[in-house]
Nucleic acid binder design. Structure first.
Lengths: 190, 190
DNA sequence: CGAAAATTTGACATGACTCAACTGGAGTGG
DNA sequence: CCACTCCAGTTGAGTCATGTCAAATTTTCG
C-alpha cells in the first residue's frame, strides 16, 4: 500500500524514502462498503482520497431529487471535491462508493503541514492538478461535443473499466443521457 | 505592468520584490492586434500568457471548418493551451485576440528555470491551477446541465463583460448553441 | 423465493438544429 | 461621402435527436 502510493508519487517527482514515509504516515487508511459515503453533499470536504482499490462516483442531487454523476474514480486515482476542498465551502457533490473501496485519506490540515516540510509536494500537486485539468478538458472536447451514441461508445472504448464495473444507468447519468435513451442506443448497436 | 503582475501574484503567495523582479524579467511583453493569433492550432504551445489588457478566445476548428470556442480570457487572466503546454504536444486549439490585447508571456523553458530558483512559484501555479480547475467544473455544472436559454442568461449575468465585448455568434459558439437559435432565444425575452 | 432495482419497450412531445433567404449596419475604397 | 460589399444577426419552414411518461420485463441479491 505504501508501495502503491510511492510508485504513484514517483511517477511525477522523485521523493526520498523518508519523504514518502512522512506523507504515508500523515495519511489514514479507510474502507468503505458499497453505497457508503466518502463525502456528503453540503458538508465541507476536508480530505483528498487516494484510491487503493475500488470504484466511487461523485454526484450532485438536484431539486427533483435526480442524481447527477459528474465523475467516477477507480484504483490509483485521487479524488476529492476540489471546489469544496480548496475554498472550504459546502460541497455541491456527494462522493459514494459503488464497489467496496479502500483509500488512503489526507486531510487538508495535514497536507498544508506537509507542504511546508516537503516543498516538492507542491510540485507534485501542481502537476497532478494540471493533469486533472487536462483530463476534464478532454472529457469536454471528446465527449460533450458529440451526440449521445458517440459519447457512449467513446467512453466505453476510452475507459472500458467503466462499462464493465459501473451500472448502465450511472453511465447514462455521467454522459447526460436518459437511461431509456441509452438503452435504445445499445439496442441499435450501430 | 510590473505592478499588475505583482498584485496578481501576491493575491496567492507572498513574494519578495527580488522574486517578482526575477519573474517579471523572464517575461516578455507582446501586443496583438484584432484577429492576431497568440497560438495556432497544431503548433506546440510554449507559453503561458498573462493578459494585461484585452480579450482573447480559444477555439478549435473541426472537420467542417466550424470554429468551436471553448474559452474566453480577459484582463488579468492567464491563458494557455494547457494540454499542449503541459505535454508539449500539438495544440487542438488556436488562441486569437478578439480585441487589441497586450500580454506578458512566459515560456515553458523559463518557467522551469524559475521553478528551481523560486520554489514558492510552484505553490503559486499549484493554486491558480486548482482555481482554474474549479472554474471549469463550475462552468460544467452551472451552464452545461441547463437548456440553451438558461445557459445564455446564466452567462451574461455571471460575466457581463462577455456579453458586452464578445460578438453574439461567438457567445453562441461558446455556449454550444447555433447563432440562429440564440437569436430566437433573445427575441422571446420572456 | 420474492421484492426491489435495473433495464427495456413504445407512444408521444419538444428543444434545438439545418438550410435558405432576408435585413441592417459597418467598414472600405474610389 | 457615397456606393458597395461583407458580415452579423434575424426569420421561418421543416426535421430529428433526445426527452418524458408509463408500463412491461429482467436481473440482482437479501
Amino acid at each position: 500500500m505504501r508501495e502503491k502510493l510511492k510508485s504513484y508519487i514517483n511517477r511525477y517527482v522523485k521523493m526520498e524514502p523518508y519523504e514518502i514515509d512522512l506523507i504515508f504516515s500523515s495519511m489514514s487508511f479507510k474502507r468503505y462498503k458499497r453505497k457508503e459515503f466518502l463525502l456528503k453533499q453540503d458538508d465541507v470536504c476536508e480530505e483528498r482520497f487516494f484510491i487503493i482499490e475500488g470504484l466511487v462516483r461523485s454526484f450532485t442531487t438536484d431539486e427533483n431529487a435526480t442524481e447527477n454523476i459528474n465523475l467516477f474514480a477507480i484504483d490509483n486515482w485521487w479524488i476529492t471535491d476540489i471546489e469544496s476542498f480548496v475554498y472550504q465551502i459546502p460541497s455541491n457533490n456527494s462522493i459514494q462508493a459503488i464497489e467496496e473501496t479502500t483509500v488512503l485519506s489526507l486531510s487538508k490540515a495535514d497536507l498544508e503541514i506537509l507542504f511546508t516540510k516537503i516543498p516538492k509536494l507542491e510540485r507534485f500537486f501542481r502537476i497532478i492538478t494540471e493533469h486533472t485539468l487536462v483530463a476534464f478538458l478532454r472529457k469536454d472536447q471528446i465527449y460533450m461535443k458529440k451526440n449521445s451514441k458517440e459519447r457512449y461508445y467513446g467512453l466505453i472504448k476510452g475507459i472500458p473499466a467503466f462499462a464493465q464495473r459501473v451500472p448502465q444507468y450511472m453511465i447514462a447519468s455521467y454522459l447526460d443521457i436518459t437511461p431509456e435513451y441509452l438503452s435504445e442506443i445499445r439496442k441499435n448497436k450501430n
